[in-house]
Amino acid sequence: MVVKDSCLSDDMRSIISVPELCDIIFLVGPQRMPVYGLRAILSARSRIFGLMIASHQTKLQTHRGKNSAITNTLSCVRTIARRRSSHHGQDNVTKLTIPIEDFEPDIFEHLMTYVHAGTVTIEPTTVVGLLNAAQVFGFTQLYRSCLDFVLSCIPEQRSMEAMLISATHYYGFKSTKLILKMVKTYMNDYPDLLNMRSRNFRDLTTKVLSGTISDGVTSSTSVCSDQKRRSVTD
């Protein structure tokens, strides 16, 4: 008999939403937004995360090893004082902190949900970021699911528009280049398609595909509110 806990995914999702239960902080994006996780799960699920965590742990230990005995003693005293005075102090002392500069906080939160809970919802506004994150951190199933979702978005104007807008944040990534190549191929196969769609869409598509649009375009980010989505379960 195989017993499956249907609540496990929800429980794991709850854990990473409570900072006190986590032991690692990712500071994501230019604003260094905190996104939390568990080292053991991250290391077990991804070799890339495992190496990243080990590297930062080694750097932290090396840095601490350079301190004098007096400095270490004073540090211990301050640590004890902070732990007694506030939970915030405890949070900063006990957690490993790793900066993540290349991804948006929302995308990285989605990735953490997938890593810890084994499930995530993909939408046109998030698929480009998730596809690139899956490729960078080595999540093959998520990568394939995102790629399939990209293919389903390309024929639909609103979905493609939202997808192309989000692609402006990830121009330098390998998977973004693949997506834009797929869009170009589709446009070449259906040359009359752009003329059948709105002028704004034609302008957006032309600029994104040519790389002449600036990063951070948000004029049409609301178009996905009623669009399709897909849940991926690992």
Results as ranks from 00 to 15, higher is better:
K181M: 01
L27F: 01
F139C: 03
F139I: 11
C224K: 04
K95S: 05
D10R: 12
G50P: 00
V223A: 04
K181E: 05
L193F: 12
V128D: 04
P191E: 09
Y114A: 01
D226L: 10
H56A: 02
N200Q: 11
D11Q: 04
F139Y: 15
I179K: 03
N132K: 06
I98K: 09
A69V: 09
Y143N: 14
T113Y: 08
K59Q: 12
I24Y: 10
R82P: 00
P155K: 11
S68V: 06
S6R: 12
A162T: 10
I25N: 04
N67L: 14
C153G: 09
K181L: 02
P30Y: 01
T206N: 03
S152H: 04
D148H: 13
Q61P: 00
H63Q: 13
A44K: 05
L96G: 03
E156P: 00
S210K: 04
D10P: 01
D234H: 14
Y171F: 06
A40L: 08
Y114L: 01
C146K: 04
L131Q: 10
E156M: 12
K95Y: 01
L42H: 06
T185E: 15
T140E: 13
I15Y: 11
C146S: 07
T62Q: 10
N67K: 14
D148P: 03
F137R: 02
